[in-house]
């Protein structure tokens, strides 16, 4: 997952904009460098320290 995010230009320190993530187990949708990406909530909680 981290490699996938990396190849899309999302790495430690990249600024992202949260689009949707309201209920538990719901995928998180964020915008980074003009691209919207959906990732599973479980992995999102592990990756993003500050949301």
């Amino acid at each position: 997952m981290l490699t996938k995010l990396n190849v899309m230009g999302v790495s430690v320190g990249t600024k992202i904009k949260k689009i949707s993530s309201t209920s538990p187990n719901w995928p998180m949708v964020f915008e980074a460098k003009g691209v919207q990406v959906a990732i599973g909530k479980g992995i999102a909680q592990k990756i993003f320290v500050k949301i």
Binding site: M1, Q36, G40
Partner: peptide
């Protein structure tokens, strides 16, 4: 089952 990872097109 792996987690979702998908680019969403405009």
């Amino acid at each position: 089952s792996p987690e979702l990872f998908m680019e969403i097109p405009p």
